[in-house]
């Protein structure tokens, strides 16, 4: 009765989440596909203390960009600002365009026309979205780097082998 399960389904160490590609983090330190949006944090080009929270909703492509204190980005003049374009560019590097397109529910995500897929993601309307949630997720993300390193063995990590050597 269980013979129909594949080796993949019976594997304890199957890779479920595809590995991310390395990318430059200085301009867009945080990108994620979560809460039904492509969302992230973009560093301000002029003020090192300031960051923008940018997001694009799956399905409608409704976009928003504001400072973490919810002040709307001055670059939103009826079109997506440069922060949103950077967000899309970096998300494509990090996840691959197919995964981003699939998440945002762009039609035909397997299309080889990357330019067209990218245009689709940026053709929605501006719609205010709360920045605080994304910003706090970014802070939580950064907090992982503050966790003290440990030398007590973590045997559960045998289920999480590192992989990806393909050079």
């Amino acid at each position: 009765m269980t013979a129909d399960l594949t080796a993949w389904e019976q594997s304890s160490v199957t890779r479920v989440v595809p590995p991310l590609e390395p990318r430059k983090l200085a301009k867009v330190p945080f990108v994620e596909l979560a809460d039904g949006r492509l969302q992230g944090v973009v560093s301000s080009g002029s003020d090192i203390e300031r960051v923008y929270v940018s997001s694009i909703a799956a399905g409608t492509y409704a976009y928003n960009c504001s400072t973490n204190n919810n002040r709307q980005c001055g670059g939103l003049t009826g079109y997506p600002c440069k922060h949103l374009r950077s967000l899309v560019d970096e998300a494509v590097v990090q996840y691959g365009i197919e995964r981003v397109a699939r998440y945002l529910r762009v039609p035909d995500p397997d299309s080889t026309d990357a330019g067209e897929l990218r245009r689709s993601m940026l053709e929605g309307q501006h719609e205010p979205a709360p920045a605080a949630v994304v910003f706090s997720r970014f802070l939580r993300h950064l907090a992982y780097l503050e966790l003290p390193a440990t030398t007590a063995p973590l045997p559960e990590l045998h289920w999480f082998p590192a992989s990806g050597a393909v050079r």
């Binding site: 390395p22 983090l25 990108v31 950064l142 780097l145 503050e146 390193a149 030398t151 063995p153 990590l157």
Partner: peptide, 18 residues
């Protein structure tokens, strides 16, 4: 024997950067 060291990270730290 074994000896393990571990640290918190984020998903964008990959490859030799770990």
């Amino acid at each position: 024997v074994r000896a393990a060291v571990s640290a918190g990270k984020v998903d964008t730290i990959v490859g030799p950067a770990i």
